[in-house]
Design a protein around this nucleic acid. Structure first.
Lengths: 146, 146
DNA sequence: TATTGTTATACTCTATAACTATA
DNA sequence: TATAGTTATAGAGTATAACAATA
């Protein structure tokens, strides 16, 4: 991980620098805390999406996550290889795969989400509970464009 | 750019998702607004760093930005090719290059920084001035670990 | 021996184009 | 003709290893 020597206020205060490094720091925490469950932060995102939206075709899931459908193929391949999701042909349109969580996938999702909650809490550890909640809400509004 | 269909609160509220998409949105704004100056957001970061810290060796600059020294070689190559920075051998240690802004580099830095300020303002456009300042301060504390 | 800049190389992430099977 | 999944391929971005010059 970066060493973070002093940058001076001009670069160190830029939003691009700050957003990138916050994301890198959270990714490192996720890599560490999700390791026991054998999944990545991106795979957890797909499990969360399927849990909320199932049944969902691969392409629908890809659109919601903002990635290409060809990217989704490899992610689903990996999750299926671990037994966490299953592809079934959609009976009403046999071009499609419906992707659904398995029982093992639901267990992993529950435990890995708790680990991710821990990673988020560590990232925001320096803020008190009130400021952490404020930060979450402001960040949500930034992304939503409100 | 992503279409952002509804994700449900579980995924759409995760910090990893929010930080990534805020960063992607800002990168897109930077790509658009920095185009007239012929530099990328990463090149602007290096110009800002050199302006604050010059004279600086390539390796010192790389450490401060948290990237590998081999990555910095290509960035400096590009900036030098555009006439915005110049490499000089360090007289006191001839293994090193001292990298300094040229006059053209200083002009580009000034104008591109104004464009980047505009990009940041657009990203935070939905927040009022008070909330934008609050968000900046909280994000800075998150990265600093305070 | 260790360090700086460099090159060559490889690995990850992602997208584009083309193929297939269905519609 | 168009769409879903897939494969092959290529382009960023970044890191590791090895080399030459210098300390």
């Amino acid at each position: 991980m970066p060493h973070h020597d002093d940058l001076g206020p001009r670069l160190g205060g830029r939003l691009g620098y700050l957003l990138k490094h916050a994301h890198v720091a959270l990714s490192a925490l996720h890599e560490e805390l999700l390791a026991p469950f054998g999944i990545s932060d991106r795979e957890l995102a797909v499990l969360l999406l399927l849990d909320a939206r199932e049944p969902e075709s691969q392409q629908q899931a890809a659109r919601r996550l903002g990635v290409d459908r060809t990217t989704m193929v490899a992610v689903i391949d990996a999750l299926e290889g671990k037994g966490l999701v299953a592809r079934r042909p959609d009976p009403t349109d046999r071009r499609r795969n419906v992707v659904a969580l398995t029982d093992a996938g639901r267990v992993t999702l529950r435990d890995a989400t708790a680990a991710s909650d821990d990673a988020e809490a560590r990232l925001l550890g320096g803020l008190g509970a009130d400021d952490a909640a404020r930060f979450r809400e402001l960040l949500r509004r930034v992304v939503a464009g409100d």
